[in-house]
């Protein structure tokens, strides 16, 4: 039976503490009220999804260069986590949108490009499932992962390139962040704890992929 390792406990504890602090300790936003607290899940999910897809890109390129399947395991693991995080970003954004804009969904450029990002990486995983040969699968997925990543900057800059309902950047922007410093500290703590969870899940998922590869190899006919 698999046990949770100390890094897993640490990541879980950090996430629990930051969520509890975000829900009960940090004051609510003066304008939006309690619904703003969803930002402590929404923003880290979105940033970590970008990171996860960047890791997929980098690991894919490293596979193409070194032909080492360990990089492909990292690529697929990170893509799966990125897809889940993108889904979480869309879901939390919809909940926030219902409370703030009065509707679950709007054809806003940021929302639409994020949904497209979700579909592109779902396509990445579908492509992987459609190819039997292990090395061929890794090679084609690496190319697709490279092309797919083109959409990530489009998602990030969509709020600057097109007018929409989604607010422009409040933290990563020229000049000071347009957010209260206490709320910013909690947001950064959330990003840190989400990162720990991402790294722990990535590690576990890579181990699982290695086990699957070993099983596939063992089942292949000899010669």
């Amino acid at each position: 039976m698999s046990r949770i390792s100390p890094p897993g406990w640490l990541a879980g504890l950090a996430l629990t503490v930051t969520i509890l602090v975000g829900l009960f300790a940090v004051p609510a936003d003066a304008a939006q009220g309690d619904v703003q607290r969803i930002m402590y899940v929404h923003v880290p999910s979105a940033w970590l999804a970008y990171l996860a897809f960047f890791v997929t890109l980098a690991a894919g390129l490293l596979f193409l260069r070194r032909q080492d399947l360990r990089f492909d395991r990292v690529a697929v693991a990170s893509a799966e986590i990125g897809l889940v995080l993108t889904g979480l970003t869309i879901a939390t954004g919809a909940i926030w949108g219902k409370a703030t804009w009065g509707k679950w969904w709007d054809w806003d450029p940021r929302l639409t490009t994020t949904a497209i990002l979700f579909v592109i990486y779902a396509g990445y995983l579908l492509l992987r499932q459609s190819i039997v040969d292990r090395r061929r699968r890794a090679r084609l997925a690496a190319v697709f992962g490279t092309v797919a990543f083109l959409n990530v900057p489009i998602v990030h800059f969509s709020v600057l390139w097109w007018r929409g309902l989604h607010q422009p950047p409040t933290v990563i922007r020229p000049g000071d962040p347009t957010i209260d410093h206490l709320l910013l500290a909690e947001l950064l703590a959330s990003v840190a704890s989400f990162t720990l969870v991402y790294l722990w899940v990535l590690r576990r998922r890579v181990d699982l992929e290695a086990t699957r590869d070993a099983a596939e190899l063992a089942l292949e006919p000899a010669g």
Binding site: G123, L126, L127, F144, I154
Partner: peptide
């Protein structure tokens, strides 16, 4: 430019009739 690359990527994959639009159309959104 995008279609020629993606169609080559999925040429030998299983479920190609489904996979080609799923892989290509989101990339062609811009």
């Amino acid at each position: 430019t995008a279609t020629a690359l993606v169609v080559a990527l999925v040429a030998d994959a299983g479920h190609r009739p489904l996979l080609l639009p799923v892989a290509l159309l989101p990339l062609l959104v811009p």
